[in-house]
Design a protein around this nucleic acid. Structure first.
Length: 285
DNA sequence: AACCCTGTCAACCGCAAACTA
DNA sequence: ATAGTTTGCGGTTGACAGGGT
């Protein structure tokens, strides 16, 4: 698979777009559409690569782009969606009409993440072991976020070569699978992010990673936020194993309904979570 | 006035998925 | 099934503006 030649080496222009170039691109797309971004600049008479054209169009020139500052409501929505989806900017943008993933990414990094109290804690978590040791000599644990991620083995009947190491797919979760939860032995339950009681609390990374699945169904009854067959991983420090087990014990069958599984975890965690603006109605929709 | 620092945001880069022949 | 091509995505960069010293 060959890499496309660098724009500069091809004599193509880089950098900020001029109003003239914008006009050419707008006129061309309005007249011809954009079926082939690679061919578009040549046909339109632009000295740009297709990638640059596509980016300029999708992030700036598209007629449905909403300009101007984000409203408080939009910002709250981004924060909530980011708590659920992580850095999936395009997925967040899909739920905010008129806003682009690039714009949302920018506003997140420049404004929103600073608002979250958890952000500072996460910054602390990401400090180097040396830094942590210097500030707290008694603690040498939990230096990496990845360290305490829940990992659940996928049932053999839903495995394929592409999902070998994937976390559990919600629709195929069984009770026995819950018992195979692997935990890190050195979880620091007294850390700043750990709950003070035996109830989970959430931090900003709760729904930290969403891996897109690529196939096979049983998702028709998923709420919208779980659409696109997504698999979730989350930090175990946020949710102890007993909570996971009890979250699934309500299911009468040995193979619990995938959505019940996630819904139970979601609501149990949510009951005690202190997430500003976190709307549990998502789980009911 | 000159310099530095910080915040903002448009644009680029590189990777991987999706598509096509 | 395979290789080449195109598209989409998230991370990162760098130019610019504004404020502080």
């Amino acid at each position: 698979m060959g890499r496309a030649p660098c724009c500069e080496k091809m004599g193509l222009k880089k950098g900020p777009w001029t109003p003239e170039e914008d006009l050419i691109l707008i006129n061309y797309i309005n007249a011809n559409g954009h079926n082939n971004w690679r061919a578009l600049p040549k046909q339109a008479g632009l000295l740009r690569c297709g990638k640059s054209c596509r980016l300029r169009w999708t992030n700036y020139l598209r007629p449905d782009i909403k300009r101007g500052n984000f409203t408080g409501e939009e910002e709250d929505t981004i924060i909530r969606l980011h708590q659920m989806l992580g850095n999936r900017w395009s997925a967040i943008a899909a739920r905010l009409p008129g806003r682009t993933d690039n714009e949302i990414k920018n506003v997140w990094h420049t404004h929103l993440k600073k608002r979250l109290p958890q952000y500072q804690q996460n910054q602390d978590k990401r400090r180097t072991p040396k830094q942590i040791a210097s500030s707290n000599p008694s603690s040498n644990q939990d230096t990496e976020k990845e360290q305490d991620l829940v990992s659940v083995s996928l049932p053999s009947h839903v495995k394929n070569e592409n999902t070998e190491n994937r976390p559990l797919s919600p629709p195929q979760c069984s009770s026995s699978d819950i018992s195979t939860l692997t935990t890190s032995d050195n979880i620091d339950h007294n850390s700043t992010t750990a709950p003070t009681e035996n109830v989970p609390s959430l931090d900003v990374d709760f729904w930290s990673e969403v891996l897109s699945a690529d196939n096979s169904g049983e998702t028709s009854d998923l709420p919208a936020i779980f659409s696109d067959q997504q698999f979730f991983r989350f930090p175990l420090s946020s949710l102890v194993t007993s909570e996971l087990e009890s979250a699934t014990s309500s299911s009468s069958s040995s193979m619990c309904d995938g959505m019940d599984f996630w819904y139970n975890i979601y609501t149990r965690a949510g009951e005690s979570a202190e997430l500003p603006g976190f709307d549990l109605d998502y789980a009911h929709s």
